[in-house]
Amino acid sequence: MALPAYVDRWERIWHWVYLTFCALVFLFLFLLLPVLVVVPLSFNAEPYFSFTEGMLTLDPAAYSLRWYRDILQNGMADPTQLFSGWSWIGDAWANSQWIHAAKNSIVIAIGATILSTLLGTVAALGLSQSILPGRRLIMALLISPMIVPIIVTSTSLYFLFSEIGLANTYLGLIVAHAILGTPFVVITVTATLSGFDRSLIRAGQSLGASPLVVFQRVIMPLILPGILSGALFAFGTSFDEVVAVIFLADYDQRTIPRQMWSGLREQISPTILAVATILVAMSILLLTVVELLRRRSERLRGLTA
């Protein structure tokens, strides 16, 4: 951002102060550093949360993968056998706490994503039609899980699920996470449909296609990026959710965030940093995918050249 020629000295100084402030906020103070600090510390050879002398002088001996190994080992029947032979794989798969949590997280997130994407997409198709009676009210109801504080949602579901026997079950968690995920699907798909040219549907119909064929061949390809990014939001929401899990899950349904939560409250070890690093890598991946989808969607809808 170049300064125009007419500014005086004070304005020039002010401008640099402003730029420095922004740089500080961006990098050092707030947005990125806290997340990035976790990454090198997860390779710490010592069980500390601070940079050791050796780490600062880049001594290779000060770095290790022991906390990453610990992710696998924690809970294994025979942790000493890690990486020797093949039998440790079965042991880790069956017994490692973090792998158990990861399996739960993935199962619950996939279940919740499928449920909320199906329900949300179909609902968005209806919502995008302006003739729908009571559209604003329905929209408000469907979006409400996003606004109601998570603690209120969780406690309400806790009471309901205890009565109908869904507490401490996978199905209960999938339902709870689907509730939290549907608003994102509804919002993204409705937004995609708002730029949708409805005459394409009529064109399809006039050429003799049945409603189902029109949906498959005309609507679906155009709104697919919206559906996918909604699904990703739903997946991310479920994968990151911990309050509902605290209230509605037993030890058996423990997810990764739940495991981190108890790790942070009980015995905090750098293993959590290793898990955090893996999650940061995952979120970078997820962010890239969403961004690519968004660009593709804009291109398809002709919003950008």
């Binding site: 961006f26 990098l27 806290p34 997340v35 976790v38 940093l273 955090a276 979120s283 962010l287």
Partner: peptide, 20 residues
């Protein structure tokens, strides 16, 4: 830079602050 923390797990960010 804005979106990355937005997409990073809440627990990870809280952990980061405890570490710091």
């Amino acid at each position: 830079f804005v979106l990355l923390p937005f997409w990073t797990s809440l627990l990870v960010r809280t952990t980061a602050w405890i570490v710091l």
